[in-house]
Nucleic acid binder design. Structure first.
Lengths: 353, 353
DNA sequence: ATGAAAGCGCTAACAC
DNA sequence: GTGTTAGCGCTTTCAT
């Protein structure tokens, strides 16, 4: 449809005006004083010719490309990255920006990371979004200083860069409270054995929430395993077969959905029905899994989409001078996690039977 | 590190040469005749100043942006899209290209689709990759004609556009043959009730493969359900409780991994162990699920990464004049699917007992 | 072996 | 109200 070999000049000739006039009407330049007739002449000429602006030339002149660089870690590993990409893309598209995407391995070295940012800078992106999946703190390359940036999923270290992170602790508390509200008093935690920062924080929040509810958080059983189904299975088995049967938890909090999947298997193995005999709570919603389990897993959704959309919005606001990024850089902004209530949580079985 | 306000001019001044010379040495222009000393002078000046070329200006002049547009359907829905993005991104990065990404809803209207392509064209991408997840045929917008394009995951309709698609039929045959090789003679198929093109093809290939093996493909039980775990569960239940117990399949082919997950539950419900009493084969590897099931699901991997990488490679070859795209447009190129052997398939239980 | 200069398509002073 | 013109940073033809 639109013919990209047509330039503003062709439109000018066709409309019988100068390029300035064309530029002014097509860009709705506020101070331009152009008669309505000329305006429509230009508009229809442009339409007729299928004119599309050359954003490159515009960018060269205005020094704004309207492109945002998204550096995203381990794109293919989880659907979470997809939510981040989508959140950023939709926010960008809605405001006329485009997303230049770069994948970076979580384990990439400094040099390769530098090169990735360099490619983005060479293309003169207006700003950069840096999304990481598992870090608490991230050190941004110094070269990034030349362009505004916002971190997604982890806070900045030394460097003062605005960031948006999920309120994992709050999500955990909500989840535990949901379990408590359902009437459970003996909860177990299945933890990720990998030493990721969020894990330690999660255990703490778990115990603290129990303490606050008048239960003994310190006494609650915590078992960890590799963050996969098998690890969850083994941890659940350990937690569900304690020395004193009276202590057996009636609810399990699993720090990720794959481990919850393993917990389901452990429950089946022990003849425990979910949620009748055992309630299971997941974390970091992997819809694919949570929704496929039976009963469907109640879990906490990490706000990947919202974080990315928010970060992109912030970045664009800064680029357009609506806000001052340096004032946002104090601490990371925190976005709440949503409890996705499905069918794996119920009241504990009565002491009868 | 690199300072993006430095231009070729600054380098020229610093090196005491003209911009032409700088351009020539930095771009390794073949016909340029420049003394080694001058070359190194220029190089070190550039290095010193942290010069990075302004790709925009280059692009404006050379009419090549080095950007590929990737229009990807439903990015966030499945991890498959992640594989596609990654395949395209890594192929592009390896050759100095960048990926401009646009999400498009599978259900988007013509206008919105047009706008998406328009945005890419306005930015003067050199070529376009169009990835769809569930179509057999796709009609590309006419506006796309102005720039080379390659389709990923579906063939072109009327318009002659090169495409790369997975060999789902071959994957299906391999999978069925693996079941046959294990000694199964009574296979059942769990089909996707949604009317997606691949579904009909899969059923056909299933029956044909059985026929070729001397079994009666027409007689093999096929049940369908919604393409989720629950649909798989229900279909499996129906298929595993036939009128004549002697006919009960000893192996189930599930046309997607979520349905296979449901089949696992049906098996458990019926007291059938996998793979002892029942072998289960999945399709369209969702590693997250296949790997988390117990036993791990043997399934067929769709080559999303390879398709995208191949498509990007083809596109770049065309852009660089290495091949002629119009000669690739005859029919779609077909990439094989890999059988991911895990633990859900074994020989059928002996007739004894 | 090196440099001057003309654009690529557009925007924005500034002139009329 | 509308047009002229000087660049944005680079590549490339043509001189020297």
């Amino acid at each position: 449809m639109s013919n990209r070999t047509i330039g503003i000049k062709d439109v000018a000739v066709a409309a019988g005006v100068s390029v300035t006039t064309v530029s002014h009407v097509l860009n709705d330049v506020p101070y331009a004083r152009i008669s309505p007739e000329t305006r429509s002449k230009v508009r229809s000429a442009a339409e007729q010719l299928g004119y599309g602006p050359n954003r490159l030339a515009q960018a060269l002149r205005t020094r704004r490309t309207g492109m945002l660089g998204l550096v995203c870690e381990d794109i293919a590993t989880t659907p979470h990255a997809g939510r981040i990409i989508l959140g950023a893309e939709e926010a960008a598209k809605a405001r006329g920006y485009s997303l230049l995407i770069i994948n970076t391995s979580g384990s990439a070295g400094r040099a390769s990371r530098q090169a990735d940012f360099g490619a983005l800078l060479d293309r003169r992106v207006d700003g950069i979004l840096y999304a990481t999946l598992h870090h608490r703190k991230v050190e941004v390359p110094a070269s990034l200083g030349s362009v505004p940036a916002v971190l997604i999923g982890s806070g900045a270290g030394e460097s003062k860069v605005p960031a948006v992170v999920p309120d994992e602790e709050g999500g955990m508390r909500d989840a535990v409270n949901a379990l408590l509200d359902a009437g459970h008093t003996r909860l177990g935690l299945i933890d990720n054995a990998d030493d990721v920062p969020s894990s330690r924080q999660l255990v703490q929040a778990f115990r603290a929430t129990l303490d606050e509810a008048g239960l003994d958080g310190g006494a609650a059983p915590v078992e960890s395993g590799v963050p996969k189904a098998q690890g969850g299975y083994e941890a659940a088995l350990r937690i569900l077969t304690p020395k004193h049967p009276a202590d057996t938890p009636t609810a399990l909090f699993c720090c990720n959905d794959r481990m919850a999947m393993g917990a389901y298997r452990a429950a089946a193995h022990l003849g425990l029905s979910i949620p009748g005999d055992l309630s299971v709570m997941g974390f970091a919603d992997q819809e694919l899994i949570a929704d496929s389990l039976h009963p469907a897993l109640t879990t906490v959704e990490l706000p990947h989409y919202r974080m990315a959309a928010w970060a992109a919005g912030l970045l664009m606001d800064a680029l357009e001078g609506k806000i001052d990024l340096s004032r946002m850089a104090a601490g990371p902004s925190v976005l709440g996690c949503t409890l996705m209530v499905r069918d794996s949580v119920a009241a504990p079985a009565g002491p009868a039977t």
